[in-house]
Each structure stands twice: as C-alpha cells, then as structure tokens.
C-alpha cells in the first residue's frame, strides 16, 4: 500500500492541505496506523515533483498558514490506474502460529495446550472487537476496519481447529 496513492485518492475530492490529509487519513482508515505529519509533507513534495499534485494556494483557519494542494490530471490518471489493479494475494500468510505448533510437538510432544491457549487469546481479542462494534456512535469506517480484523482472527481460529485435526499426521512425521 503506497501512501502516495492514498493521498492522491483523498485529493480527488477537492484541494486539501497537509494537516487535513493527515486527519482524514486517520479518520477514514481507523484500522491503519496513524500517518506521521512529516510523512504527509514528504509525500506531497514527492508527488509535486512528479507533477501529480500542484500547490493551489494557502489556507488559514485560525492557525498557521497552510499550503493547499490539488491533484493534477497526471495524478488523477495515476490513482485510477492504481485502483484498477489488485492487491496481490499473499502466497504465505504469517506462519508464527504454525511454527509454534511444530515446535510444541518437537519440544514437548504435544500441541494441545498451545492450541487451546491460542484459541482463548484469539477469542478474547474477538470479544473486545465485537464489543467495540456494539459501541453507540461507531462510524461505518471503523465498523469496516473492525470487521476486517474479526474475519482475519476468525480465519486463524479455523486454521487452529484444522491444525488440531492434523496433529496426528504431523506427530507421525515429527516423531516417527
């Protein structure tokens, strides 16, 4: 995910200054790590150098004067081209859980305890996220980000159950 494309996308609505872009980024993508102010300005300068945005003026809203940027036709073409692409499906997702299962079998001869503890930890996190979804006044953007996290934890839990069912085969391989 390129921060340049994200800023270009936000600029398609109207010209904005850097602080506004940071605030909108953090509000609209609540599941994503907040963007650093310095990173917004560095990215805007790079986009300006490449002709994808241009300075359209300045704004003063009770605070310091801020430079306002607008997207250019090159920038608009760039963001449309990027949106027509897809994120490559990851060939291997994080294998930390899988590594622990194998090592639990090598070291202790059983992974049952680990699988139950990991399930409990995942489900506890899912409970917290589910409770957050039921909070009054939650935004649709935050709901979407929370759903994403929940579906991924759910996928891990289903994998943990499959792993439990495969433990017999795996044990034969590891401890023949």
């Amino acid at each position: 995910m390129s921060i340049g494309h994200v800023l270009l996308g936000l600029l398609t609505e109207r010209p904005k200054h850097g602080y506004e872009l940071k605030r909108e980024h953090d509000d609209r993508f609540p599941g994503v790590k907040p963007i650093a102010y310095g990173q917004v300005y560095a990215t805007l300068q790079r986009l300006e150098r490449d002709g994808k945005v241009a300075v359209s003026g300045t704004a003063k809203e009770g605070g310091p004067e801020r430079v306002v940027y607008e997207i250019t036709s090159v920038g608009t073409d760039e963001v449309r081209r990027w949106l027509a692409e897809i994120e490559p499906p990851a060939p291997y997702v994080s294998s930390a859980l899988s590594t622990r299962v194998v090592l639990a079998l090598i070291v202790g001869g059983t992974a049952d305890g680990y699988l139950l503890r990991q399930r409990a930890a995942h489900l506890e996190r899912m409970r917290e996220l589910t409770a957050r979804k039921n909070t009054a006044g939650i935004s649709a953007g935050e709901l979407l980000a929370t759903d994403y996290a929940l579906h991924h934890l759910d996928a891990d839990l289903r994998w943990l159950e499959t792993a439990r069912q495969r433990i017999g085969e795996l044990t034969k391989e590891i401890r023949p």
Partner: peptide
C-alpha cells in the same frame, strides 16, 4: 461460528 462465539 467463532464470530458468534465472540458475542458470549
């Protein structure tokens, strides 16, 4: 369904 269980 784990997502249902997370409501408990």
């Amino acid at each position: 369904d784990n997502q249902v269980a997370a409501h408990a």
